Amino acid sequence: MEHPRQPTALVLRALHLGDLLVAVPALRALRRALPEHRIVLATPGALAPLVGLVGTVDELLPTAAPEELTWPAAPDVAVNLHGTGPQSHRALDATRPARRIGYRAEGWPGPPPDEIAANHTHERERWCAVLAAHGIPADPADLRLPPPPGSRLRHGHAPVLVHAGARFGAKRWPAARFAEVAAALHCAVSPVLLTGTADERDLALAVARRAGIAEARVLAGRTDLAELCGLVAGSALVVSGDTGIAHLAAAFGTPSVTLYGPVGPQRWGPPADGPHAVLDVPAARRGDPFGDDPDPALLAIGVGDVLRAAAALRGRYVPGLLTT
């Protein structure tokens, strides 16, 4: 006796760590709306540990960009969580789906991008609104992830993570300022660890030297994504610019201080009701997120601002964290 073929929903989100995390509420909504479907997520293969924690995806299809998307058979549903098109729409159209879910475009029913942008500021809210327009209710607050298996939850001498890097210079606060923050926060109760990618290791080492922190505490380039998730989930505090690790802190409910520059927290920031402090000086903003040098809004944030925010979080969420 032949078993009925399981329907497939092919979802495109071929972007980076933070981009995947803001799409978590939408992915969970799809799982609830399509319980009989096999959900295939086209996203970079390096994000596999994170996809596993989301818990709603049946298969990861390694895809670094829309033009790399390939799928052998026409999916029953194609879901564009990548962008407004046209490249992402064309990539999914090439798979010949029976049903299309995404922003409105030729051959795609759905809400116009301008309408969503006018009524919803945050990226999480926008994707939930797109699904809602297709009759799929979604809760933008449904973003929390369970801690990774084997991770040490916050207790005892939980570390403070200081992350000085960012993908573009416009979002990189000066290393000298990160060093002052790291030196002030580093103590026996909550030792500082410096995180980052392999490309950011020299930056993290420079911050450590200026802060008087041992090189052994520089983890930049020494952790994979699964290990970084465990670190963030078990830390007392994360201090960073507007980059992927800030989204991890929001996902795990880890207290965080995030510094915003060319783009404000209204679009990509953590939930307002969580243990998070956002530092933002919108009046100084230049607004080029791909610039080579720090945005003036980022430079308008001082070391004292960061330490005061950390101290305020200490009083509410991080017992034992010392600041000066």
Rank of each mutant, 00 (worst) to 15 (best):
P44C: 11
G110Y: 07
A164W: 03
P255D: 02
G18L: 11
R316S: 14
V263I: 15
P86K: 06
D273S: 15
V54H: 13
L194C: 07
E67Y: 04
A211P: 03
P49Q: 06
A277Y: 03
G102H: 06
C229Q: 06
D58Y: 07
A311S: 14
T84F: 06
L53K: 07
T197C: 03
A204R: 13
L161R: 00
R152H: 02
V22Y: 15
D305A: 12
L21Q: 02
W268F: 11
T324I: 01
A98E: 15
T84N: 07
H134D: 01
R38N: 01
L205H: 05
T121N: 12
A170M: 11
T324N: 09
R32N: 12
I136G: 07
L131E: 03
R154Y: 06
V181P: 01
R152N: 01
G196A: 07
R154W: 06
R222K: 14
G52C: 08
L313T: 04
I213F: 09
E2K: 14
L60R: 12
L21V: 05
V40T: 02
A300Y: 12
G156K: 11
A309N: 04
P72C: 04
A48Y: 06
A204D: 04
G102Q: 08
A118V: 00
A233F: 00
R32V: 13
P97I: 06
E67A: 15
P112V: 13
V318E: 02
E2R: 13
E2L: 15
L161E: 00
A73E: 13
T323D: 02
A98K: 15
L225C: 14
A46S: 09
D288Q: 08
E115F: 05
